[in-house]
Amino acid sequence: CHSECLGNCSQPDDPTKCVACRNFYLDGRCVETCPPPYYHFQDWRCVNFSFCQDLHHKCKNSRRQGCHQYVIHNNKCIPECPSGYTMNSSNLLCTPCLGPCPKVCHLLEGEKTIDSVTSAQELRGCTVINGSLIINIRGGNNLAAELEANLGLIEEISGYLKIRRSYALVSLSFFRKLRLIRGETLEIGNYSFYALDNQNLRQLWDWSKHNLTITQGKLFFHYNPKLCLSEIHKMEEVSGTKGRQERNDIALKTNGDQASCENELLKFSYIRTSFDKILLRWEPYWPPDFRDLLGFMLFYKEAPYQNVTEFDGQDACGSNSWTVVDIDPPLRSNDPKSQNHPGWLMRGLKPWTQYAIFVKTLVTFSDERRTYGAKSDIIYVQTDATNPSVPLDPISVSNSSSQIILKWKPPSDPNGNITHYLVFWERQAEDSELFELDYCLKGLKLPSRTWSPPFESEDSQKHNQSEYEDSAGECCSCPKTDSQILKELEESSFRKTFEDYLHNVVFVPRKT
C-alpha cells in the first residue's frame, strides 16, 4: 500500500485506493498535508475557505447554543480562536489581540433580562453583547459592586439597553466600559436606550469621564423622579442622539420631579488639616426662599486615587461607600458681607490618608415646582503625618564578641513616609551569675543571650482551647457569634421535631 494509506488498500502504491488515510483526505486521495488554498479540518480532512465560511455563517444565523462559528488559524479551520487571539470578521482569520481579548457573548432569543446578581454573573467577562440587555433589578445585597464585577467589562451592545423598574439602582456607572450601543435591534418605538419607572436612579454616568455613542435609535425617559433633566440632556449631547427624540420621548413632568437638581456650584473657602482632623468651610448658599434650606450634607471617604465619582458603590438597598454628615444651616444675616460661612470639623480620621470630599445642599421643593440647590466639586484632601507606631517583631542576635545583629519589621501604621529608623542602645553591667558559677561542674549549661522565638506554653494553649472559665478566673470563653447562636437554635429545633416524629412513629394507638 501507499505510504499515506492506513489499515489496508485495494490497489498497491495508489493513494486513492486506501481504506483510511494516515494524515489527511483531499478529493478522494490521501495526502501528507493540505496544500494551499485548503485548510486542515478536524485533523483528517482538507477543506477550502468557502466550506469553513459556510459553517461560520450557519452557526451565526441559527443562534443555536453550542454550535461553533468556525475560524481560520495556522492553516486550520477550527471552532474558535485560541487564547490571546480574536477573529477578523472580513476573512475569519485569528489575529493577536492588542491588550485583553474581546469576548463576544451571543444571547438566546436576542435579549437577556438581568433581574438578579445570579443572572448578571452569566455575563461575567463579556466585552461584546450580541443582542439586547434588559435591566430589571428590584433589590439585593452589595448590588453596585456585584454588577460592576460582572457587567463592568461590557464595551458594546449590538441591540438596545433597557432599564425598567430597577428600584435598587442609583447610577449606571457599573457599566464602566460601555462605549457603544449599535441599535441594530430596537425596542418598540425605535428606541435604543429605554429608561422607565426607576424610582431611585439619580445618575446615568459621570459624563466628564465617560463617552457613549448610540449609532441608531432614540432615547426614552419616563417616570424617573430623581433623575434630573440636565442629566438626560447631557446624554443626548454626548451620545449623538440630540435631535432624534420626539416631543413625548422625554417626559418633562415625570423626570426629576422629586430630585434636588443642583444648578449652582458650592466653593470651599477654608481648608485646614491635622493628622486626624480636617476643618472645612464653604461659601454660604440661600435659595430664593431661605426657609427652603434644610441644611447641608457632607460626604467623605478614603480615596487612594483621584478618580472618585459621587455615586460609586451606591445602591438604593443601603450600600453606600460614603460617610454622610448632616449639618444645620448657619444663622442668616441681613448683611451679605457678614454672612457666616458654614463648615464642619471632621474628626477621627487616619493620618497621612487622602480623602475625597464634597458637600451639597438639602432643600425642600418650592411652590413653583422649581428645584434649587448647590453642590461642590469633589475635592481631595490629605491629612498630615504623625509619629508612626512601633516597629514590629524586633530580633537581636550576637554573632561574635563585638557585634549584635538587630532586625525588625516595619510598623503596622507608618502614618507617613518613613525615611529612617533611630536605634538606641545602652551598655549593661555583666551578670554576677557568670562569676559565681563553678565551671568545672559536669552538665553545666552556660547562660545564653542568643534570641529564641517566643512560644506559647501548654497552660496558655489549654486556656485558649477551654470553653469555660478556669477556677483562677484568668480566662473566659469568647462570646458566641450570631451565626453560632442561630445554628444552635436550628439544631435544637431539629432535635425537638425529630423526637416528636419518633414518638408518633414508635407509639401507635392500640386498636379498641
Rank of each mutant, 00 (worst) to 15 (best):
G373A: 02
S321G: 03
I404V: 14
I357M: 01
L123C: 06
K277C: 15
K407H: 03
L212K: 01
H222V: 05
T113G: 06
Y223T: 14
V390R: 14
D328L: 02
G183I: 00
W352I: 15
T353S: 11
V128I: 13
H106E: 11
K350C: 14
T254N: 09
H341Q: 13
L265R: 13
K409D: 06
F193Y: 03
P304Q: 03
C228R: 09
A259F: 06
R370S: 06
L266A: 02
T185H: 15
V170A: 13
Y223P: 00
V363D: 04
N340L: 08
W205A: 02
L266W: 01
L331Q: 15
N255C: 14
N150F: 14
P288G: 04
F311C: 04
E155P: 00
L201A: 03
F268N: 00
D393K: 15
E236I: 03
G183P: 03
L229M: 08
S274H: 10
D289C: 14
L279F: 08
A374W: 04
H222K: 01
G256P: 05
F221R: 00
D292E: 04
A303C: 02
T309F: 04
Y305K: 04
E122S: 14
S333P: 04
Y355R: 00
A120H: 10
E155K: 06
L153I: 12
V170Y: 13
E156K: 10
R291E: 01
F268R: 00
I214W: 05
E283R: 14
T353V: 09
S401T: 09
Q245A: 12
V397G: 14
E246Y: 13
L169N: 02
M235W: 03
L153Y: 07
V128R: 14
L362M: 10
H233Q: 13
P329H: 02
D206G: 05
G373L: 02
L153V: 12
W286Y: 04
P388N: 01
Q199S: 05
V390L: 05
V238S: 13
E262L: 02
P287K: 05
L201K: 00
S389Q: 04
L196C: 11
F268L: 02
D289P: 02
V390H: 15
T371M: 07
S132R: 03
G140L: 14
P329T: 09
N320P: 05
K253L: 11
L298H: 00
L186T: 10
S173V: 09
V397Y: 14
S171F: 06
E231K: 03
L143N: 14
L406N: 04
L293S: 04
G295I: 04
E156Y: 07
D377G: 05
K409T: 14
G313P: 06
E109W: 14
L108A: 13
D115H: 11
D326F: 01
A120I: 06
T323K: 12
L280M: 11
H341S: 13
S208Y: 11
C261L: 06
L108Y: 05
N255T: 07
W207Q: 04
A303P: 03
V117L: 12
L212E: 01
T383M: 01
K360F: 02
C261A: 10
E237L: 13
K112T: 04
L280C: 04
T309P: 05
G183K: 01
K409P: 04
N136K: 03
T361L: 03
G256A: 07
E187W: 15
F365V: 09
A149I: 10
I278S: 00
T383E: 00
I188V: 14
L151S: 01
I181H: 00
W205G: 04
S321R: 12
L196F: 03
L204T: 10
G256L: 06
Q339K: 12
E109Q: 11
N255K: 05
S119A: 03
Q314R: 15
T371G: 08
Q199F: 09
G139N: 12
R176P: 04
Y305H: 14
G318P: 07
G256D: 02
N263G: 14
N263C: 06
L252T: 09
E302R: 03
R138T: 05
F268C: 02
H233G: 02
N130L: 13
T118Q: 01
S398I: 02
T323I: 02
V324F: 06
L266Q: 02
G348W: 04
C105Q: 01
I232T: 15
S208I: 05
R179Q: 05
D249E: 15
V359R: 00
C228V: 10
G348I: 01
R247G: 04
T254E: 03
H341T: 14
V128S: 12
E109L: 06
R164M: 14
A259L: 13
E264G: 05
W282E: 00
F296L: 04
F175T: 01
W205C: 02
N248E: 10
E302P: 09
N136R: 07
S239Q: 06
K337N: 10
L298Y: 01
T273K: 14
Q354W: 12
V238F: 09
P304I: 07
L298A: 01
I163H: 02
A385V: 03
A374Q: 03
L147H: 02
A149C: 14
T371Q: 13
I154V: 11
P394C: 14
W352E: 08
S260E: 08
V170G: 15
S158F: 11
E146K: 15
K277L: 07
S239R: 12
K253Q: 12
E146G: 15
G348Y: 01
Q339F: 12
H210I: 04
R244I: 08
G343Q: 01
G295Q: 15
G373M: 02
T323R: 04
Y355A: 00
C261K: 03
I278A: 05
G140F: 06
A195V: 08
L392W: 04
N198A: 05
F175E: 00
T383K: 00
L293P: 05
L201D: 00
L227M: 13
A144S: 14
V325K: 03
P329Q: 12
I232C: 07
R332W: 06
W352G: 02
R247S: 10
P351K: 03
E148W: 06
L143W: 15
F311W: 09
A356N: 01
Q245M: 12
E236S: 11
V128L: 03
R369Y: 13
T383G: 00
L204M: 15
L293R: 02
E231Q: 02
T113Q: 15
Q306F: 03
L229K: 09
Y160N: 12
Y372Q: 08
I271M: 08
N136M: 02
R281F: 00
R332V: 11
M346D: 00
E237H: 09
T386S: 11
E122T: 08
N340P: 07
G125H: 12
W344K: 13
S116G: 15
D292F: 09
E146V: 04
R179M: 12
K103Y: 05
K112H: 15
S239A: 10
D249W: 11
E184S: 14
L123P: 01
S158R: 10
L362S: 07
A145T: 07
F193A: 02
P351Q: 05
E109A: 07
L293H: 06
G343H: 13
E302C: 07
K337G: 09
T273S: 14
Y305R: 07
C317V: 05
N211M: 12
H210M: 05
D115F: 04
F268Q: 00
S166I: 09
G295T: 04
N399Y: 10
L107E: 05
N263Q: 05
S321L: 13
S274I: 02
A149N: 13
E236A: 11
Q199P: 09
F275M: 10
F193C: 03
L169K: 00
L161I: 13
R165E: 07
N190R: 09
L186S: 13
S338P: 10
I129L: 15
V359M: 09
I250V: 15
T127F: 13
E368V: 15
V170C: 04
D249H: 03
P410V: 02
D384Q: 02
I157P: 00
G131M: 01
L229Y: 11
